[in-house]
Design a protein around this nucleic acid. Structure first.
Lengths: 194, 194
DNA sequence: ATAAATTATTGTCATTTGGCAAGTATCAGC
DNA sequence: GCTGATACTTGCCAAATGACAATAATTTAT
């Protein structure tokens, strides 16, 4: 497994030059995760800053009735970790699981912190990753407020078809904030109908 | 206006010592915002990293029908800025407005970046602020998925009564993702009823 | 390949929430 | 204090979504 995608991801942030990317990427170690295996389990402290180069993952926790709720999907070329747990060194409330066979590269919390404090460009990179996470959470939040379930579904279909192809519908339903029954009906409804 | 609350806020992050807090706080300048005035308007680039020491603010934007949607409330002792706009130097999609007379302290983007790169402890502080924002967005997201409108309302009532006291109900309604009609009914409903 | 388990769809009906309009209360400016 | 504007409440009904249960389809394990 070569690390081209990692190099490209580091550079695409706009803060890291090609030669810096090579130096930084040298700290990352490869990691493969089989379908259905876990990157993180509830109660663990997230210790890996994981770049997903291929595959699909999801994060989930449980509601008060014990139902599994998907809180996030992670498609290729994203950093996957549990932000609160990782930075605060607290037990994670979430699980992160592979929906397909996955491959990627990781550094530990300690390595990440060392790079963060020693390299301006990596610092900017880390910050930009956090800002990107905030922006996507906000837009999902806004969508929950302003859009109907149907619109949210169609948006996901348009923006992330990989998810539709590989994730079970019940996971997609809870991610969209609806029941699987409703999702099933939305999908059955002839498209373009009001 | 003395800066004790700012000092205390910096220290309470756990990353900044009292003497460092004094040095860092020295860069902040005081700012007062009258009720209904704006800290940020749609289209501007957010350039102030603003610590709100007293008062209440809200962020809002507009949906496709032109309705005002409250995206966030900011109570005292929080950093107020538009994350994407501030860090990416792009025009803000949101407005940030004072709901009561407000006072606080700010540094510019440039000052913030200088401190971020020159001081380990401030760097950790900035990161912890971003992580806190992410955590609160996630818990609000989860609440949108798992809780009923009534539960979300009661939760807000419990966790942030200042908001209930000073924000118009229509702002609270859009923040909770419901219409003001529905909020009105929820409030009218005898509490504890199912 | 088969059986068991999981996942997805569909029917029926209840509940929640929304849309609109009328009426009431509150607030801001003069 | 008046007056107009804005905000809030309430009634009526419609639309969206959920709950539960019965299939149907698909996946997984053997």
């Amino acid at each position: 497994m070569a690390n081209e995608t990692l190099l490209q991801f580091l550079e695409s942030s706009g803060f890291i030059s090609p030669s810096q990317a090579v130096e930084i990427a040298a700290h990352f170690r490869p990691k493969a995760i089989g379908k259905h295996d876990f990157l993180l389990r509830e109660g663990w402290v997230s210790d890996e800053y994981f770049f997903l180069s291929t595959g699909l993952m999801r994060a989930f926790s449980y509601d008060k009735d014990g139902n599994d709720v998907t809180t996030a999907f992670y498609t290729a070329e994203q950093i996957v970790f549990e932000y609160s747990s990782f930075f605060r060194r607290t037990p994670s409330a979430e699980n992160i699981q592979a929906l397909t066979d996955c491959e990627g590269w990781f550094i530990t919390h300690q390595q990440m912190n060392a790079l963060f404090h020693s390299r301006n460009e990596f610092r900017e990179f880390v910050r930009s990753v956090l800002v990107k996470i905030i922006a996507s959470l906000k837009s999902r939040m806004l969508s929950m407020i302003m859009d109907s379930a149907t619109e949210r579904y169609e948006h996901l279909l348009r923006e992330a078809p990989q998810i539709m192809q590989h994730a079970p519908l019940k996971n997609i339903a809870s991610y969209l904030g609806i029941t699987n029954t409703s999702l099933s009906r939305i999908r059955a409804r002839p498209k373009g109908n009001s």
